[in-house]
Write a protein that binds this DNA or RNA. Structure first.
Lengths: 348, 348
DNA sequence: ATTAGCACTCGTAGCAAGTGAGTGCTAACA
DNA sequence: TGTTAGCACTCACTTGCTACGAGTGCTAAT
């Protein structure tokens, strides 16, 4: 029993129809709707074979067939054809590009919204995270009567400000001077590289201001941690409720629960970071509540090791072809916008 | 026909029972469960009166009664007794206080999570926003070979950094010098207060660096806009699905839709900012998809005009008493943590 | 004023019959 | 030998019916 052309045509018909209608597909439907030039009886025989091979299955004894995870896998790997973006979709993407986006988190938010609006699936996206952060600038500024401002910038332009409260604030000139020393000492180093020798030298050079080192190291820690923390944005969770496969509230609820746990999403996105495009179908997912879903992820790159990932969750009966084309378009889009953005303006 | 003591007892019984069970309450249930010393027939007569007065209603002809929005209103305004927080709840709040929280958004996130975990209702919370922002500090720092860093801090310590790309970066000393001029010129002013005279003087003083003024004004605009933008955090949306009143998926969906639109939430929170505690029951809500819900909001204050709001959405059959006590506890908590936080460290 | 009793209402659970979409099998056909 | 028509069978789903029970409103007795 081999997977001949006709079987593949039939499988394709079943998958297309099922993606569209969410109803089990019978032999007669295929005979009528898809002109394969064979009768429903023949289709029945072929379907019986396809079922034996594991590509389709029956939800109950006398019903039509639905694709199995294996069937979708075959479809995704070999049958699915690349779809071009429709005019409407193209316009949507364009409108996003042309708008004046000047902040990463805003870009992420808008991208997630656009994708979930286009596809009707739940979308989540992680901000680009690069290699282990090195210090590019560390500066002190006067702030007010009781505190000074510490600005820390990493090599990849992630930055964070910290207010350091002091009993007595030195005069402006002294603040800048101390800041200058600090910058000389820290510039170019990762936090781990700063050893006792450096610290001792600093303590000496700072003199009466060496007490500053404690809050400064704390601020550095916080900054570096934040620089390496993956931020996730999500949109379109409500769409889940529109799919008949989640009309069972308890199923919907457990998926919602999972989506509310950012850790799970971060892990999911991080794991797929090495692939440009990854499709996990039903049981291929490791998270229990997603065993009935498919997850498609696409990775965008800012540089070779600065990457982020977009993910989409939907029922296994998902319009894979559409999602893949939208994701591809969006990756290009996001890479372009990000390249502009990081060249001009980046803050965290 | 007056609202005598007995009627009130019966109404209270109906509301308590309905909040607990979500089932219409019959006269016999009340007679058995709540020892009011009267028979079910008497209760029936009183219920008939209560219905006529509009405090309760029947979902269909021969069923028990459920409270109407008016009934809940009476309950909330006059009958509900303040509940003390349970030990468990107290512990939850304490655990939040004691943890080392150093960022506003993290505090918001955690607070929302805690409240939704304690109450099982969906929680959203807005970050504290103060009066129209004045500039406290505006400074320039060297960043790298092609850009300098502009740091803007408002009076209430909201801050934002901007990268300004230049063809040729001046030497460090000149950057600080120009920054000094800028700071002198802008300090203490709101963006609107800066008029042509000031700008002309600046152009003169900056000399060859007057081209900087364009990106600086753009950065100022972005910063001030962001300073005044209300950030909303949300948690526990999934809980909605657990309530029988949302077992109708389409209802749940429309509520989800609303909750995904931040604008609506912001408006809602902003509108209730002037009240310490506000309860909107069912039809009292202006948003259509919330006409079946109750929304309770509590406002926390950092200073007289720096405020934020916590909101809770649930079915009208909500445990008002619990929610109010949790919110009260949380407002105190959040005010304490925020006071510490803004004294020591604040960034945006 | 209160209550016991009773007829009445109405949503819901359970059951039986009918319907239709779909299958598998067999025998005839090209 | 592959294809197809025909047929019996399966099974979810709908419809209509009945029985049940929780609950009400009304009336008459206390």
């Amino acid at each position: 029993m081999s997977l001949n052309d006709r079987k593949i045509q039939i499988l394709q018909a079943i998958i297309n129809d099922y993606i569209e209608t969410a109803e089990p597909v019978g032999s007669r439907t295929i005979a009528k709707k898809y002109n394969l030039g064979i009768s429903s009886a023949t289709i029945r025989n072929e379907m019986s074979d396809l079922e034996e091979m594991g590509f389709i299955m029956q939800p109950h004894a006398s019903s039509g067939r639905i694709p199995s995870d294996l069937g979708y896998r075959l479809y995704v790997d070999h049958l699915m054809q690349k779809r071009e973006l429709s005019n409407e979709e193209e316009r949507y993407l364009q409108s996003l590009i042309s708008r004046d986006i000047n902040q990463i988190d805003y870009l992420m938010e808008e991208t997630a919204k656009a994708i979930s609006a286009l596809t009707n699936y739940t979308t989540f996206i992680s901000e680009p995270v690069g290699q282990r952060a090195k210090i590019k600038q560390i500066r002190l500024l006067p702030l007010d009567m009781v505190s000074i401002l510490l600005v820390i910038v990493t090599e990849d332009n992630f930055m964070k400000n910290h207010v350091i409260k002091l009993g007595v604030v030195p005069e402006e000139e002294r603040i800048f001077e101390v800041g200058f020393y600090l910058n000389r000492a820290f510039q170019g180093y990762a936090l781990e590289q700063i050893d006792q020798t450096v610290i001792r030298r600093l303590q000496y050079e700072l003199g009466e201001y060496k007490g500053l080192l404690i809050p400064i190291f704390k601020a550095l820690e916080i900054t570096m941690e934040a620089a390496e923390k993956v931020q996730v944005h999500m949109s379109g969770t409500k769409n889940i409720l529109a799919f008949p496969e989640f009309s069972d509230i308890s199923k919907a609820k457990s998926l919602f629960q999972t989506l509310e746990e950012k850790d799970v999403l971060v892990t999911l996105l991080e794991e797929s970071k090495s692939n440009d495009l990854q499709i996990l179908i039903g049981s291929e997912n490791t998270v229990q509540s997603m065993k009935d879903c498919s997850v498609i992820t696409a990775t965008y790159k800012l540089s070779d090791d600065t990457r982020g990932t977009i993910g989409i969750v939907g029922p296994t009966r998902m319009d894979y072809s559409q999602v893949v084309s939208v994701l591809n378009g969006m990756v290009q889009n996001i890479e372009r916008v990000l390249r502009n953005l990081t060249d001009n303006n980046k803050d965290g």
